[in-house]
Structures are given as structure tokens and as C-alpha cells.
Simulated assay, not measured.
Amino acid sequence: MFEHILYQVSESTCTITLNRPEVYNAINDKLSYELQDAFKKASMDEAVRVVVLTGAGKGFCSGQDLKAIAGLQIASLAETVRARYNPIITAMRHMPKPIICRLNGIAAGAGCSLALACDIIVASEEASLAEIFIGIGLVMDSGSSYFLPRLVGSAKAFELSTMGKKVPATEAQAMGLVNKTVPTSDLDKAVAQYVHYYAAAPTKTVGLMKRLLNLSFHSSLEEMLEYEALYQEQAGRTQDNKEGIQAFMEKRKPNFKGN
């Protein structure tokens, strides 16, 4: 079905692998549209309760494939961003399921944005992130201007974006860009720990929490209190809520089904 990504579903987990390792998974037209379709497919698949995003080979994603557009006359960069990149980031943030980034190597430019758009980032010690747009005289896109200051603060975000500094994974964890950094040999094990947790979690409730946290970036306290009330009503109607209460009463571990 896909040419430049690998799409696999196994035991409630969908793994989306960017598969252009020869160019560090740089994004061309085909890959950008395939990613849009992959996230839509995972979002609609009720069997999927957690998504893992990673890259094949040594890199996660090196951003836009500049060689693919070299010499081309692009009528509008704005329309390119709107058509190719914005729908990917929107689909990721609107997906009512957790997305775990398995950061196996460099995440640069739009690739860095892809990583930051995930809910959890587990990084190899050999991985790094870089907002390299400045190097070709362009501004950040694909959501980096939104995510970066919220993760590291305005001053640090300005430094990282205007200087294009490569941030090693361990440093990225210290400044709050990634959740966990492990030796490369332990990366799959560390990702699996998160996957196993979320695959057994109350999926609809996790999705509602994700939506609440998205809203909190640009809402007042009063608005958030009302959103909490509305989403608590929805969470309270799930079968997982009933199972959680029953398990508490019976002093056992709940068996959440994601519905």
C-alpha cells in the first residue's frame, strides 16, 4: 500500500516506519502524503491503541528532501507547507491515541517537528534533534514554532531555532525535549515499556487527556475547568471506567479494553 513507509499493526500497536534510509528518511512528496494517510488509518482503526513512529536505518528523519526539489520552480512555499506538512501534524495532535516516537537517529528540520509532535519521545543516546531551517534561510514549520517554546521556554527556543544547534539526546532530555534517553541497544526495550503500558491503558480516556492538554495551551482556567467537566462526562460513560471502578472494589488490576 505504501512505498516510502512501513505500516505494521500487531497486538494493538501500529508501527509507522519512515523507510528511505539511504537519505536518512528525508521527506519527499510521496512520503508526506503517505504519512497523512497512515495517521488517518491508524486513528480510525479501533484495534490500534498506541502508535509508534520511527525511522529505518541510522536516522529518524532529516527533514525535507532538498535534492528532490533542487532546480524546481515552487510556486508557493506556503501552499506546499499547507498541503504536505500541516495535515500530518494536525492528524498527529488530533489522533485520540498516544504516539510514541522511537528516536533512533537524527531528527532535523521537519523531522524534528515530527518528533516534537509525538506524545512521548524515547531516544537513543546516539540520536539528536536540530532545527536546521536557519541554515537555508527559512523559518521553522510543521509545528516547531508551537511545540518548541512550550517545551523549553521562549529564550531557549529562540536560541535553538535561530542558531540551528544540534541537540544530543542526553542534552535534549535535560532540557525537556525528550522523555527518556537510553543506550542504542536498549532502545527497543525502552519503547516497548511505554507501548505495553498504553496498549493496556483506557484508550479513550488517554485520548481525552491528550485533547485536554492540547486545549490547555491556549485556554483560560475557567475554560479548562469546563472542558474537564465535559470530558469527565465522556470518560465516565466508557466501559473502561466501569471496569476500573469494579477492579478497585475487587482489589485487582483493571483489564481495560480501550472502549
Rank of each mutant, 00 (worst) to 15 (best):
L77K: 08
K30N: 06
A42K: 02
V81E: 10
A26N: 00
A56T: 04
Y85Q: 07
N86S: 07
D37E: 09
V51A: 05
A70R: 15
I27N: 01
D45W: 09
A47C: 02
K67S: 05
A91V: 12
C61H: 01
R20Q: 15
S62M: 14
S43H: 04
V52K: 06
E79K: 14
D37F: 02
K67E: 06
G57F: 12
D65C: 09
S32H: 00
A75D: 12
K30T: 13
R84Y: 04
L66E: 12
Q36H: 10
T80N: 02
E34R: 05
M95A: 06
A38P: 00
A83N: 14
S32Q: 01
Q73E: 08
Q8M: 11
Y33Q: 04
L72K: 14
I89S: 08
L35K: 01
D45M: 08
Q36C: 09
N86R: 13
L18W: 06
A26W: 06
D45P: 05
K97S: 10
L72A: 13
A42D: 03
I69S: 09
A47I: 00
T15K: 12
S62G: 00
A38M: 03
T90C: 07
Y24T: 05
L31N: 01
Y33R: 14
S76E: 08
V23H: 10
S76V: 11
C61S: 12
L66Y: 11
I69N: 04
N86P: 00
M95Y: 10
S10Q: 13
E22T: 13
K67W: 09
A78R: 15
E22K: 14
M92I: 15
L31C: 03
